[in-house]
Design a protein around this nucleic acid. Structure first.
Length: 160
DNA sequence: GCCAACGTTGGC
DNA sequence: GCCAACGTTGGC
């Protein structure tokens, strides 16, 4: 089971919005970057997903989700009415993919980007050194360190 | 709102 | 296939 990190702007779609979706989950659409898309295609049902809030007052990791549907072609790419319309995609060749995720946890104490950057052993995180990538893998070691800083277990439950 | 970083596009 | 122009991301 792999661990990933997905960015979202809370003004667009926040961890609270994901929580409201409950077990139905949410299609994580709108990824329009090849590197990010390729990571999406590697994701599998059951993989864990750290949810990161960007472009907000305190950017950081705010919660945990899980993948509930493997990557599939993004129908928005074919819809001229969609903000995610892609004129270069065609019905027999859609360039973009998405996955579905569902809410697991909202951390009572989020982990800020500032705190992540302050931890030397997290210096190789894609989040840190490839800062514009909206979908990125998290290594097992990185995940353990993050959980430790968040004071949670691997399933996001608070440790006291 | 500024702007640095960087991915994408398209002319040549 | 190079690279300048352009658009987007996202921290600050």
């Amino acid at each position: 089971m792999a661990v990933w990190l997905l960015k979202t702007e809370p003004g667009e779609f926040s961890i609270d919005d994901l929580a409201e979706r409950g077990s139905d989950g949410e299609p994580w659409n709108g990824i329009r970057n090849y590197q990010a898309r390729n990571f999406l295609r590697e994701m599998q049902v059951g993989d864990l997903v750290l949810i990161y809030h960007s472009a907000c007052a305190t950017p950081g990791i705010v919660g945990l989700a899980e993948v509930i549907r493997d990557a599939y072609p993004d129908p928005d790419a074919l819809n001229p009415e969609s903000r995610y319309f892609d004129p270069k995609s065609h019905a027999d060749n859609i360039r973009w993919s998405l996955i579905d995720v569902r809410f697991l946890q909202k951390y009572s104490a989020p982990l800020s980007l500032k705190a992540i950057k302050a931890e030397p052993s997290l210096g190789e995180m894609k989040l840190v050194n490839s800062s514009r990538l909206s979908v990125s893998p998290v290594t097992e070691a990185e995940y353990q360190t993050l959980c430790s800083l968040l004071h949670v277990d691997a399933m996001g439950n608070a440790l006291d």
